[in-house]
Every structure is written in structure tokens, then in C-alpha cells.
Design a protein around this nucleic acid. Structure first.
Lengths: 246, 246
DNA sequence: CGCGCAATTGACACGTCTCAATTCGAGTGG
DNA sequence: CCACTCGAATTGAGACGTGTCAATTGCGCG
């Protein structure tokens, strides 16, 4: 982890603590593919993505890789594991550079003493994450490559441009490489590329310079994805209002 | 839901509440394939499996199905969702009959007032479940059919016969149909059958009467599964000692 | 302008799905 | 106790989708 490090007070850092008051965070600037932690490493930090992207992935001994999740600007990660060491690895995945805020973090087991509100928030976040991961089980287990791509494009549009996209589709720029997208979808880059080109030929999407995507025919994508897209609702580690509680 | 219902005090029911004292639970006896709830139904109950098995699954409009999880005797489910309605359906999957304990349950959002210890336990359970589901992402996304089967057999042995299996392998009986196992692994029953027969021919496993499995060569299964098997540790909704807390 | 890596394209092999036929196993009735 | 029956599981043949490997194109950067 040779990222350039700058001590920084408050600012964005405040949103990491979820407590009122001042928080000390480090600002990390990572080059593409730079590891933040590996599977098996001790859990001792918590991260918030400022810009770029992070991939959470599991590796097989023979090099096969499954990306569990992408963390995009605003997402928080590193605090959603039970054990004292990580069950997956995390690496900067942004095309150019990825900027993060890092705060110290004790393993979960020691967190008994925190206030009930924080505990509730953490549980809700875990359940949100669980729900999203379950949706992805359906995608990886039962959708074919073109269907997975459709679900992926809808998910990315939702996360990058926001909720109900305007009548005129807003273009968005995928912050990750083709290989990463393929490893997220459980297919090869070649198959992904063929599926993308097919959607282009059929004028379902427009792609310029390999990264910028415009959805021309959302209806077709929704049909293709069989409504299986993850992110009907919340994002991975994204802070959200608590539901009104009794 | 036409299950035979019997009011029952305490006994097993006590383990549902995780509080000291008496709890009222209903005892359900379900025939195979009988639904407990559907995706979209309001969340209003919590279940503990007594005997048989339950499958949690997501459906596609065209009938494709992905089983998210099997709940086996001792497992608790129905209380691990954030929303007010279920994100998946649950059906009895036991070969003969499945017996459950059912208790009333308010949706999660209203749970602010519960004691911190319960909250902590719920969060830990969600994180355990999340970890297992992430492992399954790797299995469904990156393992081939024979590898998935290997991981599945190891998982089932662990859940049905317990931790470090003796030198002489203990036979166990799969409590589910081939179709359910296939839908759990994201493959077809035909492919599953072929993989099973292959392991038999190679004397890696022994199968009698289609259900009873004995692992003859665990080493080979472990190698095949690439160490990707879910359940290195805990089970789905299985009550576990809390880690010692500060 | 040209280097270098990522992305695309093509040809082919292989794994899994599909559909149909057969066998197996549990339960029933003679 | 044994035939019969029905559904589940297995087996086979062929089609299709995806993976593999190599060649080509495209894009960003010096």
C-alpha cells in the first residue's frame, strides 16, 4: 500500500464517523490495481470512496476472480465483516486514480459498547448489502451473459446518474475496465465485449470511447434483465436516511 | 398455507425468542413444496426449522429459479430482511414433511426499541449470512459444474454431520431433491446428475438410494472446490455463541 | 507520429442445456 | 410378497452458448 497519504481533518471525513464531532481521517490516493487489503488481512480500517472506484473480490488459487461489489464515490466499506480478518480483498479499480478516506477501525467484535442508533444503522446496512448480494446470486446463477449485461448497465446507470432517469437518457462513464466488469458478471472480457457490441448494433445503447454509455432503449434492457437487476433500492455502503422509527 | 397447525408452548420455541421466559409459537407441518411466503409478501413471521428443509428462492418470470439458501433443522429465518416485505420466497423442501416453529414478528423497521444485545446478535447474524452469500457469488460466478458440486457436498457434510468429520467418513442423507440441489448450484438437474455419477465412478463419493452420500475421498473434493466452499464457519440462521465482548 | 496496453474480432473447442428415452425407487393394490 | 404405477433420477444425442487463444483494431499518452 504505497498510496500517497495526506492527513486531513473533518470535511468529508465527518461522514465516516456517524457521530457528531471531529474525526481524523487519512486521504489515500491510489493508482489503478493498487491493493487496499487482501483476503485474510486483519480488519483495521474503514474507507469511504471519494473518487474513482474500488473492487471487492475473491480469488481462486488458479487466478479466477469474482468481483463481489464495486464501491463508488460516497460508498463506505471495510466495516461489514464479522470476523477479525477480511473475507475478500479490495483494490483500487478506477481508470485513472482512486481517492479514499481511511479511518482506524476496530474489528466488529469489540463494538458492543456503541450507541443503539449506530448499531441499528450497521444492522440495516448489513441487511441492505445482504439483499443486494442475494439479487446477484440470481444474476450469476440463472441469467445468461446478455441478460447479466443488461442488469449491469441498469445498475450502473442508477448508481451513477440517480433514480428515475429523465426521458432523455443521461450518458454516464463507467469508472472501471472491461476486465473488471467481466469479473463482476462472471463472464470473460471477450464475451462481455461481444454482448456490448450486439447492444450497440441493435441501437439499445450507445458507447463512445469505450467508457461512456448512453441507454437508448431502457425498455429492452429491463426486459432482458428479467427484472433481476440488483439495486431496486439502496447502494452498497451508501449512507441513507434511517426509516422513521417508533 | 394449509399446513397443519398446533399451538405449542416453549420447548424448542424458547430458542426462537433469545430472551429468557416463555414464548408462544405455532408448530407447522408442511408437505413438500408447500409455500411459507412469497416474494413481496409482508414480513410478519419468523421461523425455526425443526425437521426437513426449507428453500429460499428467487424466481424469474420465465420460470427459472435460483435457490439462495437451504434452511436445515436448527436454522432460523424470516427475520433477516430490511424492508417490510420479503425479497424472496420460502417453501418446504424436505423430501417427506417439514416441521417448523412459527412466531409472530414485526418488520425490522420497528425494532429500534429492542435491547442492544439482541440488536448486536441480529447484526452479527446478518454479517454471517452476508459472508456466506458472498462465498456463493464466487461459486456461481466462477466455478464449473463439477467444482460447484464438490463445494456443495462439503457444505452439506459440514452442516449435516458437523465439524471435522472423523477419519471414517460419516454418511449423510441429503434432505432435498435433485432439482432443488441443481437450482441451488445454478445448473440443470441433468448436469448435476452427470457430475454425481462421475464422482461415483471415480470412487470419490458413494451414493445409495439417491439420497445417502458418503464422502470417500474428501481431499479430492476439497481440491475440486478450490477452497471456495461456503461455510468455512457458521450456518445461515444458526444460533451461535456471541464472541466474547469487551 | 508512434508506442503500448486495452478492447474487439475471429475461429474453434468445450461445457452445459435441451429434449427425449430409459431406468430407478417408493408406494399401492392384488 | 410380488407386480404395477407414477414420478424422480439417469442416460443419450445433438444444439447452443461461452471459453480459449490468437490476431487485429482502437485509444491514450509520450
Amino acid at each position: 500500500m504505497n498510496a500517497q497519504v495526506t492527513a486531513a481533518y473533518n470535511g468529508h471525513a465527518a461522514s465516516l464517523s456517524h457521530r457528531r464531532g471531529l474525526v481524523l481521517a487519512r486521504r489515500l490516493t491510489c493508482r489503478t490495481d493498487e491493493p487496499l487489503f487482501h483476503e485474510g488481512d486483519a480488519i483495521d480500517h474503514r474507507y469511504e470512496v471519494v473518487s474513482g472506484a474500488v473492487r471487492a473480490c475473491k480469488l481462486l488459487p488458479d487466478g479466477r476472480r469474482q468481483i463481489l461489489e464495486f464501491y463508488l464515490p460516497g460508498d463506505v466499506f471495510g466495516d461489514d465483516e464479522l470476523d477479525t480478518c477480511h473475507g475478500f480483498s479490495a483494490e483500487a479499480a478506477g481508470i485513472d486514480e482512486t481517492v479514499l478516506l481511511q479511518t482506524r477501525q476496530r474489528p466488529m467484535a469489540a463494538h458492543t459498547a456503541v450507541d443503539p442508533e449506530t448499531m441499528l444503522r450497521m444492522r440495516d446496512q448489513a441487511l441492505r448489502s445482504l439483499d443486494m448480494t442475494r439479487s446477484r446470486l440470481l444474476i450469476l446463477g440463472r441469467l445468461e451473459a446478455p441478460e447479466r449485461l443488461a442488469a449491469f448497465l441498469l445498475e450502473m446507470e442508477l448508481r451513477l446518474v440517480g433514480r428515475p432517469p429523465a426521458r432523455e437518457a443521461t450518458p454516464f462513464v463507467l469508472p472501471i475496465s472491461r476486465r473488471d466488469a467481466a469479473d463482476y458478471l462472471g463472464i470473460t472480457p471477450e464475451t462481455l465485449s461481444r454482448c456490448i457490441q450486439d447492444l450497440r448494433r441493435r441501437a439499445v445503447i450507445d458507447v463512445v470511447r469505450q467508457r461512456q454509455v448512453t441507454i437508448l432503449d431502457r425498455r429492452t434492457l429491463v426486459d432482458m434483465s428479467c427484472g433481476a437487476a440488483a439495486f431496486s433500492g439502496g447502494c452498497p455502503g451508501h449512507a441513507q436516511r434511517l426509516p422513521a422509527v417508533a
